[in-house]
Nucleic acid binder design. Sequence first.
DNA 1: TATCTTCATAAGTCATGGCTTATTATAAGC
DNA 2: GCTTATAATAAGCCATGACTTATGAAGATA
Lengths: 103, 103
Amino acid sequence: MTYEDRLFAALADPTRRAIFERVAGRRQSVAELARVMPVSQPAISQHLKVLKEARLVRDEPLGARRIYSIDPEGLGPLRAWLDRFWTEQLAAFKAAVETADDS
Amino acid sequence: MTYEDRLFAALADPTRRAIFERVAGRRQSVAELARVMPVSQPAISQHLKVLKEARLVRDEPLGARRIYSIDPEGLGPLRAWLDRFWTEQLAAFKAAVETADDS
DNA sequence: TATCTTCATAAGTCATGGCTTATTATAAGC
DNA sequence: GCTTATAATAAGCCATGACTTATGAAGATA
């Protein structure tokens, strides 16, 4: 499984995406997330593990708690992937215009 | 299932993403994809259906064939989602700098 | 008309993944 | 030290989804 696979797979689940968005909004602990999300604490931990392996979040101990925060680098590869098509589509558009000019 | 869910779910599968990337590179038929991809023709059709429902591709009949091409609008929502965190992280960074200034 | 190609759908199989409860480890507070 | 809080892991359940083969529909070609 490539790194890109892990990234896309991590973002595929709605619950996990919601967790990521919350953590991105404000760094917080597992219990804090579990209190507001409609799933159990172990489910939260499992989702966070997947997000961490995709480098979308980081974690840091704080007493008995563990504070999760967004990994600023994490979304970079997604942006890079997206930009490939941006430029690709621009090139295609340009080519289409030039073909139309041949008429 | 929201539209965003469909979009992320569609991009999660590696095979499907490969199909999307091929179609984005050059518009082509189902058979053409089936010839080069390591899965059967029905599998290709099923993936294309998912991509179409996520508005990532369009299709157009050409005789007995059906030509699939990228939907230029399709990646817009993904970019929008991504930009949310871009600005969000910028704001957080700015806030962190200002807090540091308080020292 | 008969055949061949192209593609979508149906039906069934199997692995994966998201969830649960139970349990354990670690740190904090009385 | 004992209890409470926090979080990770284990084990098991179950739905989903990615694939297969089989089939049918629609267009092209002889």
